[in-house]
């Protein structure tokens, strides 16, 4: 059981038996469950899962139903990662004492959380897990907003986004702070593997998840989760938005090994102007008014300089 599941192509992948069930209450077109499926199907091993408070948690555990076919726990907004880390510590202790009933099984410990529960509220707890070096994986479903509670800004919300607590209007263009660079922060913790993924690049995602399972130590996965409700686009366009985010480099795909070695894992053949990514979402529509158009230019400059930075990091190997 402990050897890695072989997934050569999508046809082979499609023989997986899903361990996440339908009739959950996520919005139609929500990218959360696409990401969860891609993560869970990447392994055949047993799973110990947690979800911090957020869309995923409230929509998959509505009494009397559960959508999870594996051990699953939810405690609070902040401590999903710590709950899984505790389970991992107990597993290791029992293993050491020889008290596991099925020692040949090799469970995977995964904690799911939204950007609110990772970038803001649960940050200290994830930081603690990384510092203690638990063998867990923390997956962020980053939809750049507190979507569950009605669209308040989080520290992951990018500049210019109109949210309920930072609405755009005559006096404001919306969110004024830039998105927190969570990847760099987690890499600085010295974890063995930190990676950014997007659901449209499933093969890249599965490769990174499996690499995350194979390393010993805490793994941080930052997944772009397109939110049709709060980003204001048609539910059918979820994958189109994901394609735009990776091809405009607004969401570059890369990994950082041991906090140092940075590898860019996807280089778009034709880089699209970031304007197209912004234009596809209702939350940025005010940026196309004359008085706020300068922000689009700033967006492009920010994306370009970030891409240049990533390329230089990749070259320098430091």
């Amino acid at each position: 059981m402990s050897e890695m599941k072989k997934i050569k192509n999508l046809k082979e992948f499609s023989t997986s038996a899903d361990r996440f069930e339908g009739a959950n209450l996520l919005c139609p077109g929500c990218a959360h469950s696409i990401i969860v499926r891609e993560v869970l199907n990447a392994t055949n091993d047993d799973l110990v899962l947690s979800a911090s408070t957020g869309c995923l948690e409230v929509c998959t555990a509505v009494y009397p139903y559960t959508s999870w076919d594996a051990s699953w726990i939810h405690i609070g907004f902040e401590n999903g990662s710590t709950a899984v880390a505790g389970a991992e510590a107990m597993y290791n202790a029992l293993k050491k004492k020889g008290r596991l009933k099925q020692p040949e099984r090799n469970p995977k410990f995964i904690s799911f959380a939204g950007d609110g529960a990772s970038y803001d509220i649960g940050f200290q707890w994830i930081s603690g897990c990384f510092e203690r070096g638990h063998n867990i994986m923390h997956v962020v479903l980053d939809n750049e907003v507190y979507a569950n509670t009605g669209g308040q800004r989080s520290s992951s919300t990018p500049i210019g986004g109109s949210n309920t607590t930072t609405p755009a209007g005559t006096h404001s263009y919306g969110e004024k702070q830039n998105k927190k660079d969570m990847m760099a922060i987690m890499a600085a913790h010295g974890g063995p593997y930190v990676a950014q993924v997007s659901p449209n690049k499933w093969k890249d995602m599965v490769k990174k998840i499996q690499h995350g399972f194979s390393v010993d130590g805490p793994v941080f996965i930052n997944a772009a989760s397109q939110c049709c409700t709060e980003w204001k686009f048609d539910p059918k366009d979820t994958m189109h938005l994901a394609d735009l985010s990776t091809d405009t480099l607004a969401w570059p795909l890369y990994e950082i090994i041991d906090g140092k070695e940075l590898n860019i894992t996807y280089r778009p053949k034709n880089v699209i102007p970031v304007e197209e990514y912004l234009a596809a979402q209702g939350r940025f529509k005010h940026l196309f008014k004359d008085e706020y158009k300068y922000l689009i230019k700033e967006w492009q400059e920010r994306v370009d300089s970030n891409w240049a930075y990533l390329n230089r990091r990749e070259e320098a190997r430091v």
Binding site: E12, E21, G22, S33, I34, T238
Partner: peptide
């Protein structure tokens, strides 16, 4: 053509694929 794009991108586990 059984490319399985619909299977991987379905958010609701509603595309039934068996034996590829």
């Amino acid at each position: 053509i059984d490319c399985q794009f619909c299977w991987i991108y379905c958010p609701d586990i509603s595309i039934i694929s068996r034996d590829k």
